[in-house]
């Protein structure tokens, strides 16, 4: 068990290093600098700024400086927000994004599993077609289409929810739903097809031959085995929710990481872009690691933790 975790942690560090290096090189490949913006800065100011951000050093030196500060978990100063570092921006805005993302993920997983199970148990009946119709809709309608539509009807016209901003829990309902729609639809479809497949397995017939009533067959034998593929897509779905939060936070004016990230792109605030990229990448790598561990716990056939033969 320990050996597996150590190996995985080592792999994670390597991947992070690759990502950090790639982002660094990509940022350096951009023609121009962040200060070649609208207003011309005086020569001396520009020079001071360049040296403050180590932009006047040769690239290998810049790389070493960057890597050194990364090791100290210091993502550097922001260029746009002169008084704040990338670390403070992330630590201020991440809780907001985390709340939004977690709510969306929970909503997606719970509702998606439920709908998928019901659709599979009523395979090829009306309720199945209904659930599948909504699932295809959820996959096809992008969140940045769904969100303004919900704003317009549910918030502006019918006044059921606040339109935008982030001032309390009720403000998180609409953005959470908009963010959850795609993963919810994906989980519903996957759970349904996985469950329909499991229901045809021989061991389900065995369970029925034991005389177990349908609810026991479903709970004990079907659901656990059908959930396996869902666990594997939790990683990609988390990615979807994170990137989806870029547009959702923009539409609902939510002060989360996504909003800062989108702004940093148009502001060419390279330290912030790199910081957010690295932060999200490590988060995702960590989520994938947790998912792998969870998978090993659910499926006894997968031997993550070598017990030394069986």
């Amino acid at each position: 068990m320990n050996r597996y975790i150590i190996r995985r942690l080592f792999q994670m560090v390597i991947t992070l290093w690759v990502i950090a290096t790639l982002t660094f090189l990509m940022m350096k490949a951009i023609p121009g600098d962040p200060f070649s913006g609208e207003k011309k800065l005086p020569e001396q100011v520009l020079k001071n700024l360049m040296s403050y951000y180590h932009l006047d050093e040769p690239i290998p030196v810049q790389y070493l400086i960057y890597m050194k500060s990364l090791l100290q978990l210091d993502l550097g100063p922001s260029i746009k927000y002169e008084t704040r570092t990338v670390n403070t921006i992330i630590s201020e805005s991440f809780p907001v994004s985390a709340q939004l993302g977690t709510q969306a993920l929970i909503l997606a997983v719970v509702t998606g599993l439920l709908l998928g199970v019901v659709a599979a148990l009523r395979h090829n009946r009306l309720i199945d077609y209904g659930a599948m119709f909504f699932a295809v809709l959820g996959i096809s309608v992008p969140s940045f289409v769904l969100a303004p539509l919900m704003q317009k009807y549910l918030a502006v016209e019918w006044e059921l929810f606040p339109v935008a901003t982030w001032e309390g829990w009720e403000y998180s309902i609409l953005p959470s739903i908009a963010l959850a729609a795609f993963p919810l639809a994906t989980i519903t479809r996957l759970m349904r097809s996985s469950m329909v497949e499991v229901l045809t397995q021989d061991y389900i017939r065995t369970a029925r031959s034991k005389g177990l009533p349908p609810y026991l067959v479903v709970f004990r034998h079907t659901i656990r085995n059908s959930i396996l593929p869902i666990v594997t897509i939790i990683g990609p779905l988390t990615v979807g929710i994170l990137t989806g939060s870029f547009v959702i936070e923009k539409i609902f004016s939510i002060p989360g990481i996504g909003k800062y990230f989108v702004e940093s792109i148009s502001n060419r605030d390279y330290p912030l872009i790199m910081g957010v990229t690295l932060f999200y990448s490590s988060l995702l790598i960590f989520v994938n690691f947790l998912v792998d561990l969870a998978y090993g716990l659910i499926d006894p056939r997968i031997q993550l933790f070598k017990k030394g033969g069986n």
Partner: peptide, 11 residues
């Protein structure tokens, strides 16, 4: 049943 591999619940 015929196939004892698939007839037992793997999990």
């Amino acid at each position: 049943f015929q196939d004892p591999i698939s007839s037992l619940n793997p999990t």
